[in-house]
Design a binder for these strands. Structure first.
Lengths: 211, 211
DNA sequence: ACTTTACTATGACATGTGTTACCAACTGAC
DNA sequence: GTCAGTTGGTAACACATGTCATAGTAAAGT
């Protein structure tokens, strides 16, 4: 928990003390489910290491990718759920090794009044998630699949810090809300153009991976 | 401003007094621009009558429809903008006659600390806008244009309370991020199926307008 | 009344994407 | 090694949507 000091949250010292006192450090492994559909959410996660993938189940039954969370970010949806004491309609999955601090739900509101830095953090967080959703909308509405695929690969590269992306075509298709065949087709074209190399469960972005 | 009492905000009396004192009642007519790109936003609008359309300009230059605001709703994006004292990247346009109360930006944060009901209102508001964006994403990602068009018409009907929708095909195309020709085509099919009647700048939904 | 502009209708066509089907290659379990 | 399961490659096709061209028609301005 001492790690907390070394990370980028800009909280005042008193708040950091509270976080140390009431927050619970948790570790998750690849694929672990941190929040799930239908369960009550009683804590809000602050991500301090690794990446979370946050999904939402739609009425139609399909899942959509809401956003990824990484360093020092938190899940606005979880916040809403906590406040309203309602069952979750989202699921969060660990991508690789993940450390979070779980903030108990009864502190959220209290700190909002007590600590301006907490309030700012929560507000900024909402605002950032908002922007990301807007980016998604723009992407889906105005860009063709090949552009979206390229953007997806770049984002993965950025998050993992590696130009080797570990994912099956099927997974990618899921996150882009399309089908496996289509993804394979487009990836093959990228490979033929010398942008990437394809292996089983693995895509390597070559150095001139642009556009 | 006395109207305030009669509307559905669930604020505590002291807050209502403050709103009366510092808020400014404003009236707008069809097409009036309430917030615009590049301007600083120094107030947050509470809609008390009519409907606002809120748009955002994307990097690509295209505009996307964020959401509609009507009774007792407010604009979360404006809130973010106010807090960060940054120029607006959104535009709000009056649809028909609109009354709003403009809350000065310096009160937003103050009230957040002072009045739980205000804090809840703001939080709920974020949460609702969030849900709407998600609905948009689902709609764009998983539904065909004809479904989306029908949903659009129903929403317009709901908001205006009338089964006669005043809009050109071009406007509709814009909001659905498609082209005029496509909208005309789909509307004509709906007309041929006996769901609607088409006039110039006007669409009448017939009573068995379903599915 | 005449011109101009905005709005709508419609055909023809190009293209992106979804779908189905089938096969090949790899992986892990037994 | 065999087998089943997963993953990826490819062809063929259907269809929704975007685009271009062209014309008719209503409204608005002069």
């Amino acid at each position: 928990m001492d790690k907390l000091d070394t990370f980028g949250f800009e909280f005042e010292p008193a708040l950091i003390e509270e976080i140390k006192k009431f927050g619970e450090l948790k570790h998750f492994k690849e694929g672990d489910i941190i929040m799930d559909y239908g369960k009550y959410i009683r804590m809000m996660p602050l991500v301090i290491k690794g990446t979370l993938k946050v999904l939402k189940k739609e009425d139609s039954g399909k899942e959509i990718l809401l956003y990824y969370l990484s360093n020092n970010e938190t899940c606005s949806m979880a916040y809403s759920c906590c406040l309203e004491e309602k069952k979750s309609d989202i699921r969060a999955i660990a991508e690789g090794e993940v450390d979070i601090i779980a903030i108990p739900h009864n502190k959220l509101d209290e700190w909002l009044h007590k600590y301006p830095s907490w309030k700012n953090y929560i507000m900024r967080s909402f605002s950032e998630r908002f922007s990301e959703l807007l980016k998604s909308i723009e992407s889906i509405a105005f860009h063709k699949l090949d552009d979206r695929l390229i953007a997806y690969l770049k984002e993965k590269q950025r998050l993992s810090g590696s130009s080797v992306i570990k994912a099956s075509h099927y997974q990618i298709a899921d996150e882009l809300a399309t089908s496996r065949v289509v993804v394979s087709r487009l990836l093959k074209i990228l490979e033929n153009n010398g942008k990437i190399l394809l292996y089983r469960n693995e895509i390597k972005l070559l150095k001139d991976f642009e556009c």
